[in-house]
Write a protein that binds this DNA or RNA. Structure first.
Length: 421
RNA sequence: GGAGACGUCGCAUAGUCCGGCCGAGUGCACCACCCUGCUAAGGUGGAGUCCCCGCAAGGGGACCGAGGGUUCAAAUCCCUCCGUCUCCGCCA
């Protein structure tokens, strides 16, 4: 949710932001009108309510004779208060809808335009070369017996899989490596629920543009989360947290579920796009003034991971039109996938500034005695199942085996190569 | 799954039966000041969150797990939901 004060004081700034996203500026005026209507309704209601409160006290004190006369007038007033209150509820609903339709203000410097207008910030590592055609991760996985898509489909349908043997171990190793990095940097590990209530799903914004992506359990009215960001953002909802000692950082490990509706025929081979996967997610609650710096820190931890795994990658500054509604800026780290001769997204890190925290009502007190203000939230991926794709393909050898990066070996019982047995 | 108890201002509690004098008492913790030679204690005062009006001073509204209802008026009465605890049963 955008700052309603900013909407009133500087609607043009919000319009400018909408333009860089390629979104409709008319949303701003609609929100302004709804906000004014809401405040008018509140003022009218409160005036009546105040009157009712005063007379109510008189009624309590009045003698029996006076009481009857007072009750007559006050009954009529009571009805007007009720009507005014109903008007407020309607106006508030409309206003919050209109305000909620506004995406976050994009930060200065974010490239304007759509998906293709991203800016490459840097390319790191040398793109691997192979004597012949490199095998793709599915081929490698099946030959090495570490990935079984067929049985995944048999048991659960398309886009499901079994990771097996060293494949299963490697996924866990990846998570452990990321967990170590996070904990060393002061993150608090959390293993969150992956089923959440509608309010939380709503609050984190995933029922908006991503609604079709989300699994819903009708019987229990619970949602399966597509990322632990949902639970991590909800963790401190309706709380006033203490950031005087610096950012509050959590790292969540969870299974993620995505329906992948609308992606038929896209990435159908292997485990690039699947319904269920593991993800290790960083989540920071910070003072808004520190948000941009925290964003750089998150991306640098992501890069450390990629580097220690020997992957070639580029970091892109995602264009405004391709940002989620909560993000003010987003960096994707994309690793080179040899079979596709292309960079594919492995991580994403978003600075949501105070947008998410307003909706979830997470605040902090900048200093003792000061009034509360919304915190900034940021999130970023530290590892996912998809990383296996880049790892296997990048580290494949001419004999069809796969080298295990040194960083992962301690978490795999010292294993250094995966070969067909 | 069955039976019952409970959910109040950071924590602990009073108030709910008998609706108005309760946005709400008390203790602890907290902040400021005072007092005491130190430790401990004592005294006085102050403190919640959100919203609306206002340049401000200030004024007003809402909030007693959540949402509805009854009433001129609800922490208090009624309903629904959520959560916690206890007992019984069942079982990974």
């Amino acid at each position: 949710m955008i700052d309603p004060q900013l909407l009133r004081d500087n609607p043009d700034a919000i319009k400018a932001s909408l333009r860089t996203r390629g979104a409709d500026e008319a949303l701003v005026d609609a929100a302004l009108h709804a906000d004014t209507a809401r405040r008018d309704a509140i003022t009218a209601f409160e005036r009546l309510r105040s009157e009712q409160n005063v007379i109510g006290k008189d009624v309590a004190k009045a003698s029996d004779a006076e009481k009857d006369a007072l009750l007559a007038t006050v009954k009529e007033l009571s009805q007007r208060v009720k009507d005014a209150s109903a008007t407020v509820s309607e106006a508030e609903e409309l206003a919050s809808k209109a305000l909620g339709a506004l995406p976050n203000l994009v930060l200065e410097g974010v490239p304007a335009g759509g998906e293709e207008n991203f800016v490459t910030l840097r390319e790191v590592g040398s793109i691997p070369t192979f004597p012949g055609e490199p095998q793709d991760h599915l081929e490698l996985g099946e030959k090495l017996d570490i990935l079984d898509m067929e049985r995944g489909a048999k048991v659960s349908g398309s886009r499901f899989y079994f990771l097996k043997g060293a494949g299963a171990l490697m996924e866990m190793a990846l998570m452990n490596l990321g967990m170590k990095l996070a904990v060393d940097n002061g993150f608090i590990p959390l293993i969150p629920p992956t089923l959440v209530k509608p309010e939380v799903m709503q609050g984190t914004g995933f029922l908006g543009e991503h609604a079709a992506e989300v699994y819903h359990l009708g019987e229990d009215d619970l949602y399966l989360t597509g990322t632990s960001e949902v639970a991590l953002a909800g963790y401190h909802s309706d709380e006033i947290i203490d950031l005087t000692a610096g950012p509050l950082r959590y790292v969540g490990l969870s299974t993620c579920y995505r329906r992948e509706a609308g992606s038929y025929g896209k990435d159908t081979r292997g485990i690039i796009r699947v319904h269920q996967f593991q993800k290790l997610e960083m989540f920071s609650y910070v003072d808004p003034a520190d948000a941009a710096a925290e964003h750089e820190r998150l991306v640098s931890w992501q890069e450390q991971m990629l580097q220690s795994l020997g992957l070639a990658y580029r970091v892109i500054d995602v264009a405004a039109g391709d940002l989620g509604s909560s993000a003010a800026r987003k960096y994707d780290v994309e690793a080179w996938v040899p079979s596709q001769s292309a960079y594919r997204e492995l991580t994403s890190t978003s600075n949501c500034t105070t947008f998410q925290s307003r909706r979830l009502n997470v605040r902090h007190r900048p200093e003792k005695g000061a009034s509360t203000e919304p915190v900034a939230t940021l999130n970023g991926t530290l590892a996912t199942t998809r990383w296996l794709v880049a790892l296997w393909e990048t580290h494949q050898q001419p004999d069809g085996s796969v080298r295990i990066p040194e960083a992962l070996q301690p978490y795999m019982g010292g294993l250094s190569v995966i070969s067909a047995s």
